[in-house]
Design a protein around this nucleic acid. Structure first.
Lengths: 237, 237
DNA sequence: AGCGCACTACGTACGCTGTACGTAACTAGG
DNA sequence: CCTAGTTACGTACAGCGTACGTAGTGCGCT
């Protein structure tokens, strides 16, 4: 009768160690970083309980002493990389500070492409997420607006960055499980898109493709998006 | 030697029927609607090749005659519900039209809560997606801006709506696989969040919680978000 | 007309997943 | 010291996606 709790709980509310029995061999940070290592190297699908356990050098079921469900392992991973956010001293220029935060978020998600898949699904109030939110609010101190509005700003900015990176990387993560390369996948999809646009069924879309020949500058698109979001919260001039 | 192609392809480029052999028992629409039915009723996890085949009344492996990989089944599903978008006659007021589109997207994702999980991962140029994009561009005809900007507008608006609904429903989908109810899950998470905020480690966050007592009006938050996005694209006054 | 091939149908099997459960070793609190 | 709460982990099960082989079917070509 081991008595594993089948009761609702947040992993962050459960203490790391309770006191009785042998010392745990790992910390939560150990486990999270092992999982992150695997995901960085082999994509999110490489993160299975068995693989993580092997990476740590323990039996599969031993992991369940630390992490009651796989979902909680995901939460550990998200929290771990959330901790990579640099929480700098606010400069007093909330716009510049938030731009800096957003660019860092983008970089972080490029470093860990699997994050976009976890962001839509993980509830997201882990310790490091809260710290980051608090940091953003500190950056927004100079902005004259109700706290609720500031939180809406952070949510919207983060959401836009996530969606943007998600579009940018949409093939990057999924292609890992496919028996062909990302270049092939993209080529085939672009060929199909081209054939559809050329079919004449989508005149406005076709016009748009005619209009701007040459590759679009993704960084510029990103920066424009950020400016527009922030504009929506700037005090009326 | 059946010769199933292990070659990159988009399912939309593959013709539904080639002509030789017995008539297929189902259309793609049959399959998509069966899968959507299952997902609506039991969540995305209820959509397995076996279940969909059973719903259609055929053997599991027969499905692979229509859908080369599970991912393609997902694409069929997304395309099917994308077809639920009402493509109304543009009124000439691009703001009002886009608001209408956005509200419909939100309603659609509430009808099919599993969509948010598929949106970050499916490449998204299915026929109905293209039709919807073309419809949005038609709504934006009155807006004096380059086509590229209009596409950025549509992408940003859709992205914001998706992210918003994703946050709204984050527990709704995942809780299906849990042995307890959504109310319990939410209660536990909110209790934890409250304890953290009360700990004093997040003063600004705590201030924000003090400030606005009472439940927040989600619809108002949604509408504000839409207005802000559209503001970012309105011609400078 | 009839041959052949492309196609549908589907049973079996493989490797993988998350995880329930049982057992053995260990150690801090009463 | 004892015992209850932990850690550790092997075994086992149900379910997944799907590779492969085989049988039946009917269009297109010669």
């Amino acid at each position: 009768m081991a008595g594993r709790a089948a009761v609702p709980e947040v992993i962050w509310a459960r203490p790391e160690r309770t006191g009785r029995g042998p010392k745990p061999a790992f910390t939560r940070a150990d486990i999270a970083s092992a999982a992150v290592r695997l995901a960085d190297a082999g994509g999110l699908d490489a993160v299975s309980m068995r693989h993580v356990a092997a990476e740590l050098g323990c039996g599969t079921m031993s992991l369940y002493n630390y992490v009651p469900r796989k979902e909680d392992l995901y939460e550990l991973m998200v929290d771990a990389v959330s901790g990579e956010h640099e929480r700098f001293e606010p400069t007093g220029d909330w716009r510049a500070d938030m731009l800096r935060n957003a660019r860092q978020t983008k970089a972080l998600m490029h470093r860990h492409a699997w994050m976009v898949r976890l962001m839509s699904g993980v509830y997201g109030f882990s310790p490091n997420a809260l710290r980051y939110l608090e940091h953003c609010l500190a950056c927004l101190d100079p902005l004259d607006a109700p706290n609720g509005t500031k939180i809406e700003l952070v949510a919207m900015l983060n959401g836009c960055v996530t969606t943007y990176v998600s579009n940018e990387l949409s093939t990057a993560e999924r292609v890992r499980s496919l028996p062909w390369s990302q270049e092939q996948e993209n080529a085939v999809r672009i060929a199909y898109l081209g054939s559809q646009v050329a079919s004449g069924a989508y005149p406005r879309l076709a016009a748009s493709f005619m209009e701007d020949a040459g590759p679009i500058d993704l960084d510029a698109v990103f920066e424009r998006m950020l400016e527009r979001v922030l504009d929506g919260f700037a005090p009326r001039g």
